[in-house]
Amino acid sequence: MRLGLNLGYSGSSIDNALPLVQHADEVGIDSVWAAEAYGSDAVTVLSYIAAKTENIKLGSAILQMPGRTPANTAMTAMTLDALSHGRMLLGLGLSGPQVVEGWHGVPYGKPLTRTREYVEIVRTIIKREEALEFKGEEYQIPYVGEGATGLGKPLKSILHPVRNEIPIYLASIGPKNIQLTAEIADGWLPIFYSPEREDIFNENLDAGFSEVGRDGSDFDIAPTCYVAMGDDVAACRDMLRPMFALYIGGMGAKGKNFYYNLACRYGFEEAATQIQDLYLEGKKGEATALVPDALVDECALVGPMDRIVDRLDAWKESRVGTLILGTMQPEVLEPLVNAL
C-alpha cells in the first residue's frame, strides 16, 4: 500500500501547504492530490506543486468533468504530465447537480453515459493514434448540431505526450457508478471508505471487472482518509466531525446527497438523517455533534500516533492500493511511511 496526501481546496493558501508537500516528497509519500469545487481550481495548484517538487506524483481529486470539455481535460493532463516529466494522475468526477447546474450552468444529464464517453474521448486524445472523431449521446466531435458552422474537422493533438496513457481515476459513490469505474478506469477515488465495510463495494467493483475481463490487480483503490493526531482521541474526533457533517448534511439536496446515502449503507441511517435535517435547517453545530464516533473511527485515523499506526493494519489488509491522507500535520507523514 502506498501513501498519498490530499490538500483539499487549497487555493490561495497553497503557500502554507507547500512546506507540507515538499516534506511529503522528501519522506517518500507517493502522490499529492488537489481538489476543486466552486472556488480554487486544481490545475493551477498542481502546476505550482510540479515546479516545487521532484518525485511526488500529481493527482487531481478531482477535475470536474462538466466544467471542461473532454479535449480541454486531455490537453491539461498532457501538459501537466510533460511539465512534471510523467507524474500526472488524472482524477475525474461529475460533482453533483447543485454544482453542475448551479455553478457551471450545464445540465447534469446522464451521469453514467457522460462519464463513459468522457473517459473514452480523453484516452483517445492522449493515445494520439488518430484524429479525434466521436459520436455519442453527450458528445459529438466534430460538432454538427444546432448552431454548428459545418467547418469542424477531426484533429490530432499537436503536443506529443510524454506518455500515451495517463492513469485515470474516477470519484464515484453509487453502486452503478462504482461498477462503471471498475470497468473503464485505472483507479477509484472514494471518500469515507471503511476497510471493515468494503464488502459493500466489492460486488459492484467485481461486476465491473468481470464486464471487461479484468481481475482487478491493475486497479488502484485510493480513498482519502482524514487524519487528526493528538493525545486526546475525543478532541481529535471533534476536529473531523464538521467535515463529516458538511458532506453528510450539506453536500447535496435531500434525495441527491451521495454521502448521506453512503452513511446509510454503512448502517448509520438514523444519525445521518438527523445530521442532514439539522444541517439543512442551518443548525450546523447540532448536526456536527451527532456524527457518530464509530463512523469517524472507521473512516479516519485519529488519536495518538501509536493508535493511528495500529489502526493502519486494517487498511493494509484491505483492497486499498493508495491511502490518501487528509492532513495538514507534517509530523504524521514519516511515521506512517515507516509503518508501511
Rank of each mutant, 00 (worst) to 15 (best):
Leu3Trp: 01
Gly4Ser: 07
Leu5Ala: 10
Gly8His: 12
Asn16Phe: 12
Asn16Ile: 01
Leu18Ser: 05
Asp25Glu: 03
Glu26Tyr: 09
Ile29Trp: 07
Ile29Ala: 06
Ile29Leu: 07
Ala35Ile: 01
Glu36Thr: 09
Ser40Arg: 01
Asp41Ile: 01
Val43Leu: 14
Val43Thr: 11
Tyr48Gln: 03
Tyr48Ser: 02
Ala50Gln: 05
Ala50Gly: 15
Ile56Tyr: 04
Ile56Ala: 07
Lys57Ile: 01
Lys57Ser: 09
Leu63Arg: 02
Leu63Met: 15
Pro66Ser: 04
Arg68His: 15
Arg68Ala: 02
Pro70Ala: 02
Thr73Cys: 14
Met78Tyr: 05
Leu80Trp: 03
Leu83Asp: 08
Ser84Ile: 04
His85Gln: 13
Arg87Asn: 05
Gly91His: 09
Leu92Cys: 08
Leu94Ser: 13
Ser95Glu: 13
Gln98Thr: 11
Glu101Lys: 02
Trp103Ala: 10
Gly105Asp: 14
Val106Leu: 03
Pro107Phe: 11
Gly109Leu: 06
Lys110Ser: 11
Pro111Thr: 01
Arg116Pro: 00
Val119Gln: 12
Val122Phe: 04
Arg123Ala: 00
Thr124Val: 01
Ile125Ala: 05
Leu132Val: 14
Glu133Ala: 12
Phe134His: 13
Lys135Arg: 12
Tyr143Thr: 07
Gly145Glu: 12
Glu146Asn: 02
Ala148Ile: 01
Thr149Phe: 04
Gly152Met: 06
Ile158Asp: 00
His160Met: 10
His160Ile: 14
Asn164Cys: 04
Ile166Lys: 01
Leu170Ile: 14
Leu170Ser: 09
Ile173Trp: 06
Asn177Val: 03
Leu180His: 11
Ala182Ser: 10
Ile191Asn: 12
Ser194Val: 07
Pro195Arg: 04
Asn202Met: 15
Glu203Asp: 15
Ala207Leu: 10
Phe209Trp: 13
Gly213Ala: 01
Gly213Leu: 00
Ser217Lys: 15
Phe219Gly: 01
Asp220Cys: 09
Pro223Leu: 00
Tyr226Thr: 09
Cys236Pro: 00
Gly252Ala: 13
Gly252Phe: 13
Gly252Glu: 08
Gly255Arg: 05
Gly255Val: 08
Tyr260Lys: 02
Leu262Phe: 08
Glu269Tyr: 06
Thr273His: 03
Gln274Tyr: 00
Ile275Leu: 10
Leu278Asn: 07
Tyr279Ser: 11
Gly282Ser: 06
Lys284Trp: 15
Gly285Phe: 08
Gly285Asn: 11
Gly285Ala: 06
Glu286Pro: 03
Thr288Lys: 03
Ala289Val: 08
Leu290Ile: 06
Val291Ala: 01
Ala294Gly: 02
Val296Gln: 04
Asp297Tyr: 14
Glu298Pro: 00
Glu298Met: 14
Cys299Met: 13
Met305Lys: 13
Asp306Tyr: 04
Asp310Ala: 11
Arg311Thr: 11
Lys316Tyr: 08
Ile324Arg: 03
Leu325Ala: 05
Gln329Glu: 15
Gln329Ala: 12
Asn338Met: 04
